[in-house]
Amino acid sequence: MRKSPLALLLTLGLLNTPFSAFAATAPLELVGPISDYKIYVSEQLDELASHTQQFTDAVKKGDLATAQKLYAPTRVYYESIEPIAELFSDLDASIDSRVDDHEKGVKAEDFTGFHRIEYSLFSEKSTQGLGELADGLNKDVKDLQTRVAGLTFPPEKVVGGAAALMEEVAATKISGEEDRYSHTDLYDFQGNIDGAKKIVDLFRPQIEKQDAAFIAKVDKNFATVNKTLAKYRTKDGGFETYDKVKENDRKALVGPVNTLAEDLSTLRGKLGLN
């Protein structure tokens, strides 16, 4: 019996969603959420700038303990807005590159920013000779603020940022290789998640109009991730080091994270953006 191609595909379960034609989102409806997002990013960058100043002050003063304490809480403000920061790839590289991005590893002259300082603070356990790196980080963060202030946020980059943040988590935070010297990955993890959820929350009315079931599923997965991460909170509102994460919790995070990545990758399409 010859089945029609469509019937065959349906039988094989290869059609997850019907050929959906999303009703158009009126452009004026995007103005509110996009500007709210820029306001959010500017506020996050203000926090990043002031926290980085405190962090680098401790580094330059030679106060190892304080510098170590301030490292992770400072980075959170960068991780939450990473997709916007990444639009300026030179600054992203000088602020946030990891050691594997450099052929000469820790010795590479162009290995600067948070993780290079992390290496000294947590692996070498020293603040020696970090003056220039500290000044450089401060300068780069201020530079980022200026560039973001002058940037008209493209709608598709804002909405697509939610998916981009989930890709970050899936590719580097699940394994704890982002902060390999300090093992403070859970802070960054939470920062990425908060940043992605912020975008979803800002566009919630528009998304709900297109697909209410979708939003419910996304909310549920965010809740699962946040609940699992919350297990590792410390009394002062920080996080345990990554090595404390139990294997079953790591696995409990992977499923929702990957599913959020899949679901949020459809966000632009659902809102009719390229």
Binding site: E167, A170, A261, E262, S265, R268, N274
Partner: peptide, 8 residues
């Protein structure tokens, strides 16, 4: 590839 496969 996972990221690519999630790209429109």
């Amino acid at each position: 590839v996972e990221r690519w496969d999630r790209t429109p």
